[in-house]
Design a protein around this nucleic acid. Structure first.
Lengths: 209, 209
DNA sequence: TCATTCAGTAAACAACTGTTTGCCGACTTT
DNA sequence: AAAGTCGGCAAACAGTTGTTTACTGAATGA
């Protein structure tokens, strides 16, 4: 689909990427609301004025980061949920997918966790919107499982909300674990799996009207 | 227990309170990492240098806010969990307590949600520590319930972790709802209750070794 | 009563901030 | 090859920032 941009567009996108990467790097240890334009351009190797060729605001850059942060996760989880296997296997795969996603996109996930309730309204709104859309997707995927075929739409939303919330907090827990210590990661994964198993039991005995 | 402080100590505490309140007010719309000493002292009606008579840092002020933010919640929930009544009643009371706590301590709760994954390490550590302690308390309270008398320590921790995480995200959801619209609050409460009921079902059928 | 303590102040410091301006020079289109 | 587009830059703007300094004056304790 990439239409082989002209040299000019390519260079511009490269600069834009540099700005996004610089932001992502700096946001590892601070909040978006304390980030500075000069700070970002400095670590991106660009003059301060150049920033405004790409973004209106730092909020604008933040919203762009939200979009690319959740892009990859969307499909992965829904694919797992639509996959075959019993509940136990789905749980194992889900937790493994989350763990890998955090490992491979640490900075993005940290950014999301940090700004989800952060002080920048547009970014907060963008994250909430993406997460809501994700919840709807999960609800749809759950609806196709035979286990919850007879569930009402409202109950499916309730359940998918619980799952998404659990997924987010599991990701946050993985973040907290130091990246070089796999035993902590294993402990978090084991707890997450047990919690999902308990929820699964609840599902099994949920009274369908 | 208040030992009728001398006039001097009383005035100092009053100023300290003014600083904490100013911080809390400003943190409603921004992050701790972007808060300024001058900003705080200005809205507290004090000279910038005065700040340092009370706190070393803004991080220091942040940690103080963490402590007073979680002080009240501790007892409330554990009291509910240790109370009488069937599972359904405990769920109703729990959600009601959380809703009221958010209503009455909006600024504190917002601060906790915002800084839990925020950019200021000492504050993040303080919140994590308090929340861990809270999880242990909940696990102990759950252990006394007949429903989970035969559970292992590890499983109790797993379950209380799930409960605390759910409580936190419910509180965050209440925060998002506009304070003047009680119908949104009711919707969130209903969802939270349903999710707790589902977890309760899972508990009931959890295999005890 | 007199000396001491100490919360709060005003002023100064150098360093930093976001944003606008006019400009240059490389790419693009005609 | 000429004209136009436009990403990036240096410089300047008026603010803001954290922190230290020496000080004042009221509460304290002898």
């Amino acid at each position: 689909m990439s239409h082989t941009l002209g040299v000019r567009q390519a260079q511009k996108q490269q600069s834009r990427r540099a700005l996004l990467d610089a932001g992502l790097l700096l946001l590892e240890h601070q909040n978006l609301s304390s980030l500075g334009v000069r700070e970002v351009t400095r670590t991106a190797g660009m003059s301060p004025a150049g920033f405004y060729r790409h973004f209106r605001d730092l909020d604008d850059l933040g919203v762009a980061l939200v979009e690319e942060s959740l892009a990859s996760l969307h499909g992965m989880i829904t694919a797992v949920l639509a996959g075959e296997g019993d509940a136990e296997q789905l749980i194992d795969r889900t937790v493994e997918v989350v763990a890998r996603h955090v490992r491979e996109h640490r900075a993005h996930v940290r950014f999301l966790a940090r700004e989800r309730h952060g002080g920048v309204q547009p970014v907060r709104a963008a994250i909430t919107a993406e997460l809501d859309a994700f919840t709807v997707e999960v609800a749809a995927a759950l609806g196709t499982q035979e286990q919850s075929a007879a569930w009402s739409q409202a109950d499916l939303r309730m359940l998918s909300g619980l799952y998404v919330e659990h997924l987010v907090s599991t990701a946050a827990a993985f973040l907290e674990a130091p990246g070089d210590q796999p035993e902590a990661e294993q402990r978090i994964a084991a707890t997450a799996r047990a919690q999902l198993r308990l929820i699964s039991l609840g599902r099994l005995h949920w009274p369908t009207a």
